[in-house]
């Protein structure tokens, strides 16, 4: 696969390390009543869709940025690549 890095342009996917569903950006609060349950869902029950998937990749052999990639898990087609920091900002809030 080729990942079109927003800063560096097209790069081979082998330069990156995959983490998983981008919902990992939404870390729950630690000090709420249902924190344990929230963390359980956050860590273990992630999206596993056959289709469009937002996911986190790390540019290990590159600029060390975390990217949010919108990719179809059936066709592997990539539709969007964003810096995780930008993506997070655009989510309108930081989850901490």
């Amino acid at each position: 696969m080729i990942i079109d890095h927003p800063l560096l342009g097209p790069r081979d996917a082998s330069e990156f390390i995959y983490l998983g569903d981008a919902s990992l950006l939404n870390r729950p609060k630690w000090d709420e009543e249902k924190s344990e349950d929230n963390f359980y869902k956050y860590l273990y029950l992630r999206e596993n869709v056959a289709g469009m998937h937002k996911e986190l990749w790390f540019h290990q052999q590159g600029d060390r940025s975390w990217l949010v990639i919108s990719r179809n898990t059936v066709t592997h087609e990539i539709f969007k690549v964003e810096l995780a920091t930008e993506f997070k900002k655009n989510m309108g809030k930081s989850n901490d």
């Binding site: 696969m1 081979d12 082998s14 995959y18 569903d21 596993n48 898990t73």
Partner: peptide
């Protein structure tokens, strides 16, 4: 190493 439902992988 990445989520996939395609029954094929990469050259790497």
């Amino acid at each position: 190493g990445y989520n996939s439902y395609a029954q094929r992988g990469g050259m790497d």
